[in-house]
Design a protein around this nucleic acid. Structure first.
Lengths: 179, 179
DNA sequence: AGGGGCATGTAAAGAGTTACATGATTCT
DNA sequence: AGAATCATGTAACTCTTTACATGCCCCT
């Protein structure tokens, strides 16, 4: 089963959603670690419906086509739990566009590399405050079994990533300045 | 231009390589941030050759087909530098399988979540020592313009990622234990 | 004699992006 | 009146993975 399926199952395990709402959530907050466009989501929901992992109810809404709300079926819940029980996949099937640049940065004059890293640094700061703003709205303690504890853990992960990235930028800028 | 092209250009900017050698490097060390299989690399080299970004020389080697060594053309070098000069792409087009699991981990009993995180922690430790072993073979100081400085910067990035991941695992294990 | 590494390719399927297409409601 | 948001879908394309295919050389 694909990552997109797991992402959708994880969302519908929380509550029922329309395809449109899922598409919004796949920008933020799910998009922080898994993105998908609506053009990928609608066919996938259809296919999951066919596989009996989700079920749709037509609700009233705007537009030329019927608005459908999806919910998890028992089989869908089982599939999600099966996946969670399966072995954790190995590290790094990731692709990092910025690291790819850095890998070739030795071709550029040092000040241009520094400019590139500064540009990146600004993005990191922005993302950091985004995470912090979301985390501020979380209660200090959550019981296990609360869906928000799942979101909290991923936000902690994301915040840590940005903290590391910021530290890396600063270290590299220092190294470049030291010549 | 795709990430794969940039990865190949970045490799050939260092020295000429055969398709096979590129495929090895796309496992490690380039694979730490950009992976590709040989089935993707050979056609891409062909297509880049057609676009005059790289040029091939037939050298003698084993097997049913001629062994080809590729080198960067002037146009290839220009294309690489153009990309390096273009604006840095925004954060997070990334997809993280482990974060996807964590997002749904609230469905599992706490001890199973802890087991999952411990499993991950072991992978992180392994990767860390892999990075450290590579870094140990690097000289303490490198001049800018040395291709190894590019590799060094990505290794620092990777090591930092793993340090953060380790810290995250430990923090979450503590939180779970405090329950 | 068999297995692994060297070396290059193709085919088919799956995953993901970009663009096209329609139409209602709400806000300015 | 026009723009943004809600809401769903399809088509074409690119990127990525998995599997098939060939054959030499070296080691045990």
């Amino acid at each position: 089963m694909s990552g997109l399926r797991h992402a959708i199952l994880g969302l519908l395990a929380r509550q029922p959603y329309t395809g449109y709402q899922i598409a919004q959530l796949m920008k933020r907050p799910v998009g922080y670690f898994w993105q998908a466009r609506h053009s990928q989501i609608y066919p996938e929901l259809e296919s999951m419906s066919h596989d009996d992992l989700v079920a749709a109810t037509v609700i009233n809404g705007p537009g030329p086509r019927p608005t459908k709300e999806y919910r998890l079926t028992t089989a869908g819940r089982t599939a999600l739990l099966d996946w969670l029980g399966s072995p954790v996949s190995p590290l790094s099937a990731g692709r990092d566009d910025f690291e790819l640049r850095i890998w070739s940065a030795w071709l550029l004059p040092p000040d241009q590399v520094a400019a590139m890293i500064s540009e990146r640094r600004a993005m990191v700061l922005e993302r950091q405050s985004e995470y912090r703003a979301i985390l501020a709205s979380f209660p200090t303690r959550m019981s296990h079994g609360d869906p928000r504890s799942g979101e909290w853990m991923t936000l902690q992960m994301g915040l840590g990533y940005e903290e590391h990235r910021l530290a890396w930028c600063d270290r590299m800028l220092l190294t470049l300045a030291a010549g």
